[in-house]
Amino acid sequence: MDRLLSMELFVAVVDKGSFTAAAEAHRLSQPMVGKHIAALEKRLGGRLLVRTTRRQQLTELGQHYYQRCRAILAELAAAEDAAELLRQQPRGVLRLNASVTFGSLRLAPLLAEFMARYPEIGVELELSDQLVDLVADGYDAVFRIGQLADSGMVARRLKPYRMMIAASPAYLATRGTPQTPADLAGHDCLGFSRWQRDDGWDALARRHGVEIAASRFQCNQGQALRQLALAGAGLALQAEALLADDVASGRLVSLLDGYLPPPKPMHLIYPADRQPLPKLRVFVDFIVERLGAL
């Protein structure tokens, strides 16, 4: 039998004073209530109630069990109330994951606006260029750059992730300005160690059928490559989000705009749920409003 229902019926019998009243309150027959109480007594190995002609008397075991049942049922009711509250209002903590460059330069400023709009929602943002498991790692949503495998998750398309090649004016004054990918053979192309086969200088060289010398400098963080480019150490091939402000200010010069790698698809990924919690629903709506694909 349903142990939780049996506990509820036992408490109702005690509170209401009879099997009949408990049965009416739960829309059950009196014999069915009796079966539930008998099932509890069998499980516990002792009598909970002693019946007299006028009322039920709790045994010592029954008194202890009654108090624990009331506490458990109260905790359950509180948990259900809290869950209902979460489903009614956007509140709680959102756990998010994004790449380092996108997360720090594009997403973080938007999260400040989002939290101002929804003061009862907190955010835990983890930045990593490693692929994470949304469910196993306990995230509510993750941002993914690149082609997606079929995962059964909901994927909302966002604006594509564009790349840019840039160098400092001082570097170009000394080494010249490349006009085509073939000219890159005579330049210092700063390397990003986390590039996959379809990324970076090697992919650009294959795409245009040219040779590009191996980089003398390799790093796993785009910010370091940006700093080297600003210092005149070479050409950086990095996200537009990372280099665009420097180009706009004149600290860097955009290069080979007609030969750039194609933009990468970008998505917001989250579990499929017919009734997502309001905190996730309003976050998805907010991100699509700000970063949704045109």
Rank of each mutant, 00 (worst) to 15 (best):
L86S: 03
A79F: 12
I212M: 06
G138H: 07
V142C: 13
R95G: 01
R216M: 06
I145H: 12
Q221W: 11
S193A: 15
S168W: 05
L105R: 14
S215Y: 07
L184K: 04
P109G: 11
P160I: 05
Q196V: 10
L204I: 00
L268R: 09
L61P: 00
L172Y: 00
E60M: 08
R216D: 14
L230P: 01
L4W: 09
D188T: 09
G45T: 03
A205L: 00
P271R: 09
E60S: 09
Y161C: 08
A239Y: 05
E84M: 11
L230A: 07
R91T: 11
A213V: 04
L277I: 08
A170R: 05
A155N: 14
P90L: 06
A182D: 02
H64M: 14
G138D: 08
F286K: 11
F283K: 02
M153F: 10
R70P: 02
P109T: 10
Q56T: 06
R157D: 09
G138R: 13
A23Y: 08
S168L: 02
A155C: 07
D133Q: 10
A293N: 13
E8T: 06
G209R: 08
L291H: 13
A116K: 14
L86R: 14
M7P: 00
V154P: 10
E124G: 08
I37R: 10
L172K: 00
R156I: 01
V288N: 11
E60A: 12
A83P: 00
H187V: 00
E124D: 11
L255Q: 02
Q223R: 15
A229K: 06
Q147S: 08
H26T: 03
G258A: 08
Q147H: 11
L158G: 03
A170K: 05
M115G: 08
C219K: 08
Y259K: 08
S104K: 15
G152K: 09
G200M: 07
E240S: 11
T20N: 12
H208M: 09
L294Q: 15
G17P: 01
N97E: 13
Q30A: 12
R55I: 02
L277Q: 11
R91E: 12
